[in-house]
């Protein structure tokens, strides 16, 4: 007699071809870079690596926070590697990326939260790949608006910060973070008008539909234009349990709801992650070129 699978049928993926990811692995190893794909044990990792893309994770592989949903190690981080921005740019060039996504651990130990390191990384990518789009997915920088400005001044096309979950679940899911603070980071970035602003939430942590609706309304009010919703999956038995596997049709309904709320782009599905197919979302939303005064092909 078969036991019940832990994951529902809609969360299965086909076994891929090992050879398809070797190039990405080789480039990452050559430049000694981390990816959130690996650190977060992303279920889309093989698919994305197979497409020749990855999401770079800068500022080390140890985080100063300890969120209940996240598998990135919580420990005292090392000093930032000053060569990392150039390494990211070189790796992106080696992979021939046309859209580069960069995220990081949270660095509450750094005076600027790592904002200047983000800015240098965006700058290095711009130099190496002037025609590529750049998306940053940043921590909350402790709510420091100057840090947000530092990142925005580097000119990313997309400025992302994930609220991750609904306000009520912050104490268990995002200890050390603050829902209103994250909304303020997003609102401040949106008010600058210099980048498309993006956020994401996970479903399945125990939130109610009303709370999801409220969160989406808050994001829209903050000026977020791109929103992603995906299924939370527990990275280990010591992390927060999955309270519910949300069926694909519910995600589809949330996607439709988001479009009705005025978001320029919404991506919702069990395997949606904040940088999943980010290039396609950006292509659909279009580039805002008001600040740089140029339009890339």
């Amino acid at each position: 007699m078969s036991r019940d699978p832990r994951l529902p049928a809609w969360l299965t993926k086909p076994l891929g071809d090992p050879a398809s990811i070797s190039e990405v692995r080789a480039v990452l190893a050559a430049h000694r870079l981390n990816t959130v794909c690996d650190e977060a044990k992303c279920p889309n990792r093989a698919e994305c690596f197979g497409r020749g893309t990855a999401t770079f994770m800068i500022l080390g592989d140890r985080c100063t926070r300890n969120c209940g949903f996240c598998s990135v190690a919580s420990a005292t981080p090392a000093d930032p590697d000053p060569s990392e921005p150039d390494s990211v740019a070189a790796a992106a060039a080696d992979l021939g990326l046309e859209f580069v996504v960069v995220t990081s651990v949270t660095r509450d130990d750094l005076p600027d939260g790592g904002a200047s390191h983000f800015a240098r990384t965006v700058g290095a990518i711009r130099s190496a790949l002037p025609r590529a789009g750049v998306e940053v997915l940043v921590p909350d920088f402790g709510g420091d608006r100057r840090a947000v400005d530092t990142v925005l001044a580097a000119g990313p096309d997309v400025f992302g910060h994930n609220v991750e979950t609904v306000a009520r679940l912050y104490p268990v899911a995002r200890a050390g973070a603050d829902y209103r603070r994250s909304l303020d980071v997003l609102a401040h970035a949106a008010a600058s008008g210099s980048a498309r602003v993006k956020s994401a939430i996970m479903l399945g942590l125990g939130e109610t539909n009303t709370e999801i609706e409220t969160t989406l309304s808050d994001l829209a009010a903050a000026g977020v234009e791109i929103v992603y919703l995906g299924q939370y999956l527990r990275p280990s038995p010591s992390h927060l349990p999955v309270e519910r596997f949300v069926p694909p049709e519910e995600f589809e309904a949330w996607g439709s709801r988001c479009e009705g709320m005025g978001f320029a782009w919404a991506s919702a599905g069990p395997f949606v992650r904040s940088s999943y197919e980010a290039d396609r979302a950006f292509a659909r939303v279009g580039e805002r070129s008001v600040d740089r005064g140029e339009q890339r092909a």
Partner: peptide
């Protein structure tokens, strides 16, 4: 068949 990672994040269908 379907295999699952022990971290409960991945379920793969083996062809």
């Amino acid at each position: 068949l379907v295999v699952e990672s022990v971290d409960e994040k991945t379920a793969l269908v083996v062809p």
